[in-house]
Amino acid sequence: MTGVRNTIRGDGLAAAAVLLASCGSRDYPGASLDTLPANAVGAVSLGPHGLEGSDVFDQNRSLVFLFDAAGDLVGRIEGDDIHGNQVLASPARLVTVSARAVTTLTATSRAEYPIDESAVTAAANDPVTGATTLWFNSGRSSTFVTVAGDGTTTTGSVPSLVDAAAQCGDHATARDVGPADADGRYRYAASELDLLGGSR
């Protein structure tokens, strides 16, 4: 998958939206994927509409639909609902997230790294190496899950709130939102992570 492209046919997306909007329907279009299809060139992620749509019965889903160059659906990835769902692509892999797992698809495998989160606050990847970092708000700190260029998955945290991120190879940079000062202004700082050696 060479990256997300705007080649998705409007009629296919509209049909998927109608199916998803049907009350009580669990018959989502497309086959559940265990590997990344060679013909996938685009992806669309769908998740909860907003916090008011929180699902106390754990029935809502986060979904990622993959499409080929003609805009036809080639499959889906499904998981428990998470706010701010992301899908990040590189030539050799696709990484997405649900409330219970960070999922990595390659041409030969599907790997799931277990998490327990409710919202993604930032995400970034290096489309050349495939290295990806996803950030989650954990109250007064932010946790992250990284998938390094070699596919190794690690996790950690920083003692602040992350609201933006960038990725260059196995190095991640995040913008931290610090506590407000006496005048009510927020302090912004940068955290740099070496995914092979922890935070700096």
Rank of each mutant, 00 (worst) to 15 (best):
M1D: 03
G3A: 00
R5N: 03
N6L: 05
T7C: 02
R9Q: 13
G10E: 11
G12L: 11
L13M: 07
A14P: 04
A14M: 14
A16C: 12
A17M: 14
V18Y: 12
L19C: 11
L20F: 15
A21Y: 10
G24V: 03
R26G: 09
Y28I: 10
P29Y: 15
D34R: 15
L36S: 05
N39S: 12
A43H: 01
V44N: 01
S45D: 11
G47K: 00
H49N: 14
H49E: 14
E52R: 15
G53R: 12
F57T: 08
Q59P: 06
R61G: 01
L66N: 02
F67G: 04
A69F: 02
A70D: 09
G71M: 02
V74C: 02
R76F: 03
I77S: 03
E78F: 11
E78T: 13
E78M: 10
G79I: 06
H83M: 08
Q86Y: 07
L88R: 00
S90L: 03
A92D: 09
V95R: 00
V95C: 00
V95S: 00
T96V: 06
A101I: 12
A101Q: 14
T103K: 08
T106A: 03
A107P: 06
S109I: 10
R110Q: 12
A111S: 14
P114L: 13
I115W: 03
S118L: 13
A119P: 02
V120G: 01
T121H: 00
A124V: 08
V128P: 06
T129N: 08
T129G: 09
T133L: 11
W135N: 08
N137P: 13
G139Q: 13
G139K: 13
G139C: 10
S141Y: 08
S141W: 09
F144T: 04
V145F: 07
V147N: 01
A148Q: 12
D150C: 07
T154V: 02
T154N: 02
T155Q: 12
S157Q: 06
D163L: 15
A166N: 07
Q167V: 07
G169W: 05
G169K: 07
A172Q: 07
A174L: 06
R175P: 13
G178D: 07
P179W: 03
P179Q: 10
A182N: 05
D183F: 11
Y186W: 14
R187H: 06
R187A: 08
Y188H: 14
Y188R: 14
A189V: 04
A189C: 05
A190I: 08
E192F: 04
L193D: 08
L195P: 05
G197R: 15
G197C: 06
R200C: 07
